[in-house]
């Protein structure tokens, strides 16, 4: 099972952060950047943000909403929620294996 996230290339990590940010409701560009910085400490630049957003939009994982003046909010789609859940499950598996392995290696 090839992870669909792998196809995003250098935008895989920003995409995960953006989907996570949108998981609790629609946000516009700068609000996403501020939210991502707050919950992950990752300082995302505008070029990266819109590069990732455009790819997420093309895949149907986020959807643009009506713009209010220059600000356009984005919301996560059902497909985006599904891919986010899948990715989080994979990460949980990695964490679980890492915990098991480190516990076995160090006798913790």
């Amino acid at each position: 099972m090839h992870g669909k996230f792998d196809d995003l290339g250098r935008f895989a990590d920003p995409s995960l952060l953006i989907l996570t940010s949108l998981a609790d409701g629609p946000k516009h560009g700068y609000a996403i950047m501020a939210d991502v910085a707050a919950f992950s400490g990752v300082s995302m630049e505008p070029g990266t943000l819109y590069g990732a957003l455009s790819r997420l939009e093309r895949r149907g994982w986020v959807r643009p909403l009506a713009a209010a003046e220059r600000r356009r909010p984005y919301e996560i789609t059902a497909a985006g929620q599904e891919i986010l859940t899948e990715q989080v499950t994979t990460m949980q598996q990695i964490v679980q294996v890492a915990r098991l392995r480190t516990a076995m290696a160090w006798g913790a």
Partner: peptide
């Protein structure tokens, strides 16, 4: 056409 306004708005705040 699609992202210019939004990006400029982000740059105003960034």
């Amino acid at each position: 056409e699609r992202y210019r306004k939004e990006m400029l708005d982000v740059l105003d705040q960034h």
